[in-house]
Write a protein that binds this DNA or RNA. Structure first.
Lengths: 201, 201
DNA sequence: CGGAACCTACCGATCACCAGGGAGCGGGGG
DNA sequence: CCCCCGCTCCCTGGTGATCGGTAGGTTCCG
């Protein structure tokens, strides 16, 4: 009985593909149990491996987390450069259909504020960058002074905070918070609400 | 050698006081390690007990968490009824001086979105209530239509989200985010920024 | 034949929790 | 007044499960 029953025969691009599978599984497990609650065994089982088989690809649990975080970085590296605010709203709408990713990183963000959490540095640095690029987006959209009277640098953390905060409320009770709509409401506020009533429902 | 060396002799109000000590310690430990990462032994050590001594007062770990959450409920039950927005801003300022509490509940909120977390129900219900009472506050302040054109019900989740989101950014990097200032910026936005520049640096 | 991939077996640490006992105090009956 | 009883409080000791990680082997492919 060889262990490659249905695997070795198939064309496997090499270990790289396996690693990607593992990272995907880790993302799921972290979404369900958080990083501290996620066991290597649970991740391994999801890809049909033993825990030690997994550790052949990622020597430590933290290494796996790093891979997950890097995946995230790669994921939103694209829109970092050029992005418009209305696109951001659509992105929120899109994310609302993929609860897994949001939940993973909301859980990680929550954990990361605790002492000595391995993702803390990642998030700290990331939020710094995100605020900067958000300020750029705002500057491109509104110039040096937003309609509300704020500078891009002062408004940027607000936009970021709104995104995160809405995510938590939505994750806790998707039925009672329409993330995309709420975020558009906020954007209207930021952009100096053009008229009285922004929309239906 | 009795274990009550410095304890039994002192006037001890009875077990109630001990329970309060334990809850306080649990709050600290949860702030540092999250709920899943917090061990009963660590909490016990902080109040000078063994883990089993602690379990005399709280039969399970979850019971201890419930006590912590109830403490929170009691804490912000006061301003729930009547509150004004500018008071809310001051509250943010006050909270910024007590990072422990914020960190505890930010960590718990992050964990609570994971599957089967014992605090999930608490937060879901709590946020529902908070949104409602926030809508009332907004209605009292601005009436049925806020300056931005939103109804109180639609603006409420935005205010709550802003509070939470800012907390995370602030916890990650207190130096680069002024929570109270940022929140005031947001309130200015909500209240229809009166003029061009709300304030200095 | 060498290395990548994955295994079995094992390790010490830590976890929440259980079982049972002993110290101290307060109260009620002799 | 004293003594004993019962309750609260907290301890020692131990259990099974699970954790991340180690050691060393085996299979398969190029």
């Amino acid at each position: 009985m060889s262990y490659g029953d249905a695997m070795t025969s198939r064309a496997r691009g090499r270990g790289t593909e396996r690693r990607a599978e593992i990272v995907r599984a880790a993302l799921e497990v972290i979404a369900e149990r958080g990083y501290r609650g996620a066991s290597l065994a649970a991740v391994a089982e999801r890809v049909g491996l033993t825990q030690q088989g997994l550790m052949h690809h990622f020597p430590t649990k933290e290494a796996l987390l790093v891979a997950v975080l890097e995946e995230r970085d790669r994921w939103d590296a694209l829109p970092a450069g050029r992005l418009r605010l209305d696109l951001l709203a659509s992105l929120v709408e899109y994310n609302a259909m993929r609860p897994g990713v949001i939940q993973t990183f909301s859980a990680l963000l929550g954990e990361s504020v605790t002492e000595g959490h391995p993702a803390r540095g990642f998030f700290t640095e990331r939020y710094g960058r995100v605020r900067e690029s958000m300020a750029e987006v705002l500057r491109a959209e509104y110039g040096e002074r937003l309609p509300g009277g704020l500078t891009p640098e002062r408004a940027a953390p607000l936009v970021v905070a709104m995104l995160d905060g809405l995510q938590y409320q939505w994750l806790l009770d998707p039925g009672s918070v329409d993330m995309a709509e709420a975020f558009r409401d906020f954007l209207a506020l930021l952009g100096g609400a053009p008229d009285g009533s922004p929309g239906g429902s």
